[in-house]
Design a protein around this nucleic acid. Structure first.
Lengths: 249, 249
DNA sequence: TCACAATCAACTGTCGACAGTCGAAAGAAG
DNA sequence: CTTCTTTCGACTGTCGACAGTTGATTGTGA
């Protein structure tokens, strides 16, 4: 897995894009073997994998038993995920995996478009040949995932690509919002999983974005991103409806 | 206090702007007397008031003693605030009030501009005479705060105005990000507190925004917002530097 | 007086426990 | 056989406790 821990407590940014003016730390801080973070990651994984389905209850007592810990760290981990919108707490009833509706999904994509388009200007201003190379490498990776049929990883790396783009913008705060957002969206996408658009085609569709970035053409970059994201939203919404409609009837 | 609980667990949106297509609930859900939320609000208040200064340690044991509760709910509340970036947990060391630097402050304002400009288009499309009236009423409130010299409340209501504007956009997800963001910014602003720009002038400066909105002129609204926010950022950054420089030397 | 080591109080991470609550299963009444 | 009531298991909210750690204080030697 290439993205960060996605629990909102990001310890180190992706090292592939030297976007921030940080002096490139030689050593990443040892991940403090934080029980809470590990539990949060486990639950996140379970949601992303679809082992925990939307609306399903996440009983802290049961989770603690299975993980072999006490309930205290489990509760804290769930609160962490709650603030990210992945689970919601109903007082005296427990935690439940957040079940999104189409409206929320659309809103999330709208927010995503907002962030990415805004960052485009800064990205163009700060882009370097190395960054472009890294982005192209990421697309190559996407292709590989497509060929190997690893759709789950494909989604992950797709988001990683967009994250790199955002990182180029240099706004760490925006990056944090995107991380939260992508965790949610990935969880939503996990629902439909296999029946995804042709992955190779998706990989392809990122190339015009890189081209526009390399040409330092803000308007074109914005246009390409806008179209790309609109497509992604379209696909996601359609898949969402397909996945939920049969259950509803 | 007019804004919501700002702990990220928003139970009801501001009722003054009928932006969402929600059927206007007659009764707000009774606030579940959630110990965790109340503790989080207390700490948030303390940070906003400046009783807890940036960088200061927030000892959960001490907090629990003073609040008369056990440490468990205090820890959960602090985790909640951690995920909002208001405090940071250092493993085995405890929680500390997040001390922003100028870069982060600028990034936060950048994100804010991103959200508000993006929502402008939707706001224009969905604006109603009632919404405009509510916004004008809010500005009147701002004026009153200015006259009465209640600068703390002035800041709160200023954010409330912008929140109303965003609510008009109809994207609940964006609203959530803004709520987090404004909690952070308010905490930062609380630092400087009294020496704020002329409050009456600030209240005045919102009027062109409403005019552009009423005229349903997206471009003008964007321009006005952009200028307004750039000013706000300028002031905030200058105040920040003034407030921190003397301490540094 | 200053640098360094031993000491110690306070705090964090985690645990197990208890009371109250919720929802489902079991049982009674029609 | 259905519907309402009762019962019961499992779970949540909160608490106090214990072990290990941290930062500061005190004490020691030069």
């Amino acid at each position: 897995m290439d993205s960060d821990s996605t629990t909102g407590r990001t310890f180190a940014a992706s090292p592939r894009v030297a976007a921030d003016p940080v002096p490139a730390p030689l050593f990443a801080a040892l991940e403090p073997k934080d029980l809470v973070s590990r539990i949060a990651d486990q639950v996140l994984q379970a949601i992303s994998d679809g082992r925990l389905r939307p609306g399903e209850k996440v009983a802290e007592a049961r989770l603690a038993r299975e993980l072999g810990t006490s309930r205290a760290p489990v509760r804290e981990a769930l609160r962490l995920l709650e603030s990210q919108g992945l689970v919601i707490a109903q007082p005296r009833r427990g935690f439940f995996v957040h079940a999104h509706d189409a409206t929320e999904l659309a809103a999330a994509y709208d927010l995503r478009e907002c962030l990415e388009l805004h960052s485009a200007a800064a990205a163009v201003a700060r882009v370097t040949p190395e960054a472009v190379a890294a982005l192209r490498a990421q697309i190559a990776l996407l292709h590989r995932m497509a060929l190997e049929g690893r759709s789950q990883d494909h989604v992950v790396e797709d988001f990683a690509f967009h994250r790199m783009l955002l990182a180029l913008g240099g706004n760490a705060r925006i990056l944090r919002v995107f991380d939260q957002l992508s965790a949610e969206l990935r969880a939503g996408i996990a629902l439909v999983g296999k029946m995804y658009q042709d992955p190779a085609e998706i990989a392809e569709s990122h190339l015009p974005i890189i081209d526009a970035l390399e040409a330092r053409d803000v308007a074109r970059l914005r246009a390409e991103l806008s179209e790309h994201l609109r497509d992604a939203r379209e696909v996601a919404l359609r898949l969402y409806r397909d996945a939920t409609a049969p259950d509803g009837l």
